[in-house]
Amino acid sequence: MSAATTTTPQFDLHYDDWGRLVLVDADGKYHEGVTPVRSFPLSDPEHWISICDSSTRELICIANPQSLPAKTRETLNLALAKNEFIPIIERIVHATHGEPAEWQVETNRGPRTFVLKGEDDIRTLSDGRLIVTDSDGVRYFINNVRQLDGHSRRTLERFL
């Protein structure tokens, strides 16, 4: 735990031949298979990024990634992108009535059909975005309800 300080320590990040992300810490120690984790993925995604080992123990905490060297930052962003998967719903094609409901949507990552267990699985964030969690635990964003087309909005309103 003592390694986790808020001032960004010297370290290096890279991928090895095994496709693992490797952290070389200030003492020159290699940690293989580490994962970056955002501490506030919704309210402050750009700061407070922790690098954790395979059992999610924090090794390093980066308060402000902007302070990192460009190359490290690039690797970090790449690694974050690999583990981040919240498609943005752009259109609701169809949703069945009642609960659970089957939703057919178009997202920024392609079309998808999923099952929504209940209206409780739609959470409104303080910034107005919606998070929809399907029955498998996959999450989707709806960035701006007002920007949806009429049909999508009316369908969505049934669940709000």
Partner: peptide
Amino acid sequence: LHGALAQLELFGTNSRLTHWRLTAH
């Protein structure tokens, strides 16, 4: 697994051969 996102990796004797991505579904 990372949350709802998963990765299936196939390893050879000295490197990773390929990998596939999938959701919790």
